[in-house]
Design a binder for these strands. Structure first.
Lengths: 205, 205
DNA sequence: CACCAACCATACATTGACGAATGTAAAAAT
DNA sequence: ATTTTTACATTCGTCAATGTATGGTTGGTG
């Protein structure tokens, strides 16, 4: 095959990752061969082995395109007044997180990570899920402790417990929606649930 | 090989299923061969193909040993007075569900179904998860509607919304604990979260 | 303008899992 | 006592997937 320009090569790399997302989501990671990915992108396995070391390497590259730590979601809002309204910060961060998840790329990759892959090679999806869970739970605890200090929480509810409740609820919603995203909108449902839960947490009903 | 008695044959069948649980949980379903399962049970693949049609058949047999629909959990309590205390019924059902999950067999098989297998053959684990989710969510909605009729719910909280909240929370806890069961007890954590959530739901704080 | 390396296709060797076929010895049935 | 069936073990052919090696063309750089 003829050599391509740098831009073209980068484009085929992206095309391979796009194809990987689609086929992984459809067939599952273990049951899809690199041949299938390459054909779906209109290429051969040679292209895949040029751009990536192996299947695990391709998988990690796929994940790199959709990283979104919880802290960044809050920072992107960029409202300094949120320091005095932690509950509102949580609400807005969840909102923008939900909006990202509705983009096909974010939805597909997370669905693959959560529901369509097992351990393989040096990839351990459960460890990655644990990282994500701990990061978000830590952030939630910080904000809820702030809310407790400001007297915005019910007196009979510890911020640690509230954080675990909220974290579990968000995780459950996350898993459930990624299983059947066509049945409802995570933006609608998620905002409704988060607002309700935060309302139950807050001092003034 | 010599023929075994019926009891011995049934025992080897169970031993194969036990071995399958352990190896599946360790290596993931897709990455474990029937050879590995047989060897781990001290047999060969001949035994596996005698007792089961193929890998998918063995997998389904493994699941059959740990079926536990939500309704049965309530029925097993057998307290007729629970009709007037739906919130208490939910609490007790969750409690006994958590206790079951702490048995290694139930924990392992559910962990495999949720976190260690992809689609393969005619097996679709996501469809099974959806069945479980819908069944439990339906049951929760029934009980919470009963609680609403009896005036045991906050007036500003619809039973449907409460059911979704609780269902999401339980699902999140379920997924999270199955990922790292050695870090905490689901009986302790689960009962605490359920009681707290139900307390937030109830009219009298 | 020349030449090297980037970019991808093609061909080949290796691996390992499946499933079917066959072997076999003892338990049940007659 | 004989026959049949059960409960496995062993062997073998097949096929799909991986990884590597090699080839061919051209863009980029000196």
């Amino acid at each position: 095959m003829a050599r391509k320009t740098k831009a073209e090569a980068a484009a085929t790399r992206e095309a391979l990752l796009d194809a990987a997302e689609e086929v992984f989501l459809d067939k599952g990671v273990a049951r899809t061969s690199l041949e299938q990915i390459a054909r779906h992108a209109g290429m051969t396995r040679g292209a895949v082995y040029w751009h990536f070391k192996n299947k695990a390497d391709l998988f990690q590259a796929m994940l790199q395109r959709v990283r979104m730590p919880f802290k960044e979601l809050v920072e992107e809002i960029g409202d300094p007044g949120l320091a005095e309204a932690p509950l509102e910060a949580i609400r807005l961060a969840c909102r923008s997180g939900f909006e990202r998840l509705e983009q096909p790329r974010y939805r597909r990759v997370h669905a693959i990570l959560i529901h369509h892959c097992e351990v393989f090679g040096d990839i351990d999806p459960l460890a990655m899920q644990n990282e994500m869970a701990e990061e978000s739970c830590g952030a939630l605890r910080d904000y809820l402790q702030g809310a407790a200090r400001l007297g915005q929480l019910r007196a009979d509810l510890s911020p640690e417990l509230a954080a675990k409740l909220l974290q579990s609820m968000l995780g459950g919603l996350f898993h459930d929606w990624l299983r059947n995203h066509e049945q409802y909108s995570i933006a609608e449902q998620g905002n409704l649930l988060v607002e309700t839960q935060l309302r139950l947490f807050s001092r003034q009903a």
